[in-house]
Nucleic acid binder design. Structure first.
Lengths: 192, 192
DNA sequence: ATTATGATCTAGCGGCGCTAGATTGTCAAG
DNA sequence: CTTGACAATCTAGCGCCGCTAGATCATAAT
């Protein structure tokens, strides 16, 4: 029964083409340009076909967001690999901001756009959790309350990314802010 | 010529009613429910009238955002008043998060929705700058590089607000994260 | 060859932001 | 008091959106 398998494969490929098209258009022209009609033209099928793959438009955004979480996790792990302590912390911070600022539409999908992403959902939890773990790994040496410290460090990075993205803080001072943040975490432990 | 003045006053009142309606609907049903048609019904005028007050829908969101920045500034100043040092810092942090979390739609308008808000614009700069100053005031005692430190502290608060709002970090641990953040800033100076 | 079944398409609903052009109200000049 | 200009406001509609019901087509079993 290779036929059914081929069909399943073709279906999966088509689904991937939808997600890829959505991501490409978003990164090039913003999420406002990502419409069902436009995606239908892009994959050369009619609009209803998209609804046999995704419940609605938000679900497509969510699919892109999951790609983003996977790639962010990889980027953070790479940034930390081979390093420990303060160096790892700083490298992760730099990598996080570089990721957010060089993939604005992807980061939008992950954090600022309304999606159906349930953080407590079984199937997706792993992907979303993995990035958190990568941050936790480099924070751990510096804190007793690892979860709280990781949440705080992550939030600081996210805030720095968002405010720089929207032009509210000076891009030229990014390194200095990172340095300050890393030092704050390091010494907080030393004296906590 | 009291007539022209009366007309101007009525116009200003109508404009204020538009902004108030937008804000009320957004806070009650989300920004997706804030449509030009809906606002027109609310103020009992036809849709084109709205365009004699605002260039487009985004400009209405921006007007709400400016109200938000003014109110946030007041809230932060109140939180800092009569306090100095570490106490002021902590109180401001608590007030910032309370503001963001208790006015989600307002905070959305200020930070996550696309608006025409130019941060370098003459007319609005004062309102947007004022909140920054309020934060800077409580950060100053702890840092040499005030601007960089303020940007970082603000970013951390913003990140904490966003991640908690979107259910990505645990609401129950908010106080602990604030405590950690404040300590980090205090000791960063002491050893910087 | 015929029929059932699933995949895909055509066509359309209601709603959106926004605007051109008609209509109404207002007030000064004749 | 009438008239005509001007501003305020409305009606009607364009092109787009997300989404879906029902028709049509291809495929594979009888």
């Amino acid at each position: 029964m290779g036929i059914a398998e081929r069909k399943g494969r073709e279906r999966a490929e088509r689904e991937q083409r939808i997600v890829a098209a959505a991501r490409a258009i978003a990164e090039r022209e913003g999420w406002g340009a990502v419409t069902i009609r436009r995606l239908a033209v892009e994959i050369e099928y009619s609009q209803p076909v998209l609804y046999s793959h995704f419940e609605n438009r938000d679900a497509i955004v969510a699919a892109v967001a999951i790609e983003g979480f996977q790639e962010l996790t990889v980027a953070l792990r790479e940034a930390a690999s081979g390093l420990t302590g303060r160096g790892a912390l700083k490298n992760v911070a730099v990598a996080y901001l570089a990721f957010a600022l060089s993939h604005p539409a992807l980061y939008d999908a992950m954090f600022t756009l309304p999606t159906d992403l349930r953080f407590a959902e079984v199937g997706t939890r792993a992907e979303l959790r993995a990035g958190f773990e990568a941050i936790a790994a480099v924070v751990t040496p510096f804190c007793a309350e690892v979860e709280v410290a990781t949440e705080t460090f992550w939030a600081a990075l996210h805030g720095l990314a968002e405010l720089e993205r929207s032009g509210r803080i000076r891009p030229s001072k990014r390194d200095e802010r990172i340095t300050l943040l890393v030092r704050a975490i390091v010494v907080a432990k030393r004296s906590g």
